[in-house]
Amino acid sequence: MLTGGNELPSSAPPDVKTMHGWLHTARFLTTAPQLEFLPDLDVPEVAFVGRSNAGKSTCINTMTQQKRLAFASKTPGRTQSINLFSLGKQGITDAVLADLPGYGYAAVPREAKLRWQRVMGNYLLTRKNLKAVVLLCDPRLGLTELDEILLDVIRPRVADGLNFLILLTKSDKLTRAEANKALSIAQLQSGGGQARLFSALKKQGLDEVARLLWDWTHGVHAAPEPSVVYDEEEPPALD
């Protein structure tokens, strides 16, 4: 059962533990190799995008507390479908997560790359119930040319109110100074969106992302909170 989930709440937002519990309800909804196979939904949708190996599947699985909800393939070009996961308790869907195929595999044929560029571009521009886009990026590499192209595609929708987040994955690989620098750069590149640090290994950023996902899909527009860089001992620098 699908119901609208973007009404303003009648009471104060739940605590972050409740938000994590809501994310834990994630379940597979459908997969679509082309846009015409996507169901028309009237619930808020949040899309996760990013280069292959940016940690997208790991992020989704960590946030939903499920090991294999989002599937990461080691075979280039294998996971070329848009996968939808429904959220909501008692079998009632009040929001949807969309896992878009990773881009950037050098081994994928040019024709396949062009096809998926068109599919992703059309999805990001035309999906009516799309409320937010989360772009996952390895901060050691920064935004690539393909990431910049995606940013150009969605910039008009962000200007019109689409929520946008650059999520810097694998941030446990950075020193505190490197993390702060990467976060500052990403915030400037977000074009009116937000940027956060995230580490599935260190469980960094989970509460912040859970709150954003809840707010975006439940009509809450809270002021952004700054990411907190490591309170514990700094991780070692990369070799």
Rank of each mutant, 00 (worst) to 15 (best):
N6I: 14
E7W: 11
S11C: 14
S11E: 09
P14C: 14
V16E: 02
H20A: 07
H24V: 07
H24R: 14
T25D: 08
L29V: 04
Q34K: 09
L35N: 05
D42P: 01
V43G: 06
V43R: 06
V43I: 08
V43S: 15
E45Y: 08
V46F: 04
G55K: 04
K56E: 04
S57E: 08
S57Q: 05
N61G: 04
Q65A: 15
Q65C: 09
R68A: 11
L69N: 01
F71K: 02
A72Y: 13
A72Q: 05
K74D: 00
G77A: 01
G77I: 00
T79M: 00
L87S: 08
K89W: 01
G91C: 03
D94T: 15
D94I: 10
A95H: 03
L97V: 06
A98W: 10
A98P: 02
Y103T: 04
G104D: 06
G104T: 10
Y105A: 08
R110E: 07
E111V: 15
L114V: 12
R115Y: 02
V119H: 00
M120A: 09
N122S: 13
N122W: 03
Y123C: 12
Y123P: 11
L125F: 00
T126F: 08
R127N: 09
K128G: 14
A132N: 08
V133L: 05
V134E: 02
D138I: 04
P139H: 07
T144C: 03
L146R: 01
D147G: 02
E148M: 09
E148C: 05
L151Y: 05
P156K: 01
R157D: 04
V158H: 12
A159Q: 11
G161V: 13
L162A: 01
N163D: 13
N163A: 14
F164R: 05
L165V: 12
L165C: 13
T169C: 05
K173M: 14
T175Y: 10
R176Q: 09
E178L: 10
E178S: 11
A179N: 07
N180L: 15
A182E: 12
I185T: 14
I185K: 15
I185S: 11
S190F: 12
G191F: 13
G191H: 14
G192V: 12
G192Q: 10
L197T: 09
K202I: 00
K202F: 02
K203I: 00
Q204N: 10
L206E: 15
V209M: 14
A210I: 14
L212M: 11
W214D: 11
W216H: 03
H221V: 10
P226N: 04
V229D: 07
E234Y: 00
P235D: 10
P236W: 06
P236I: 08
L238A: 14
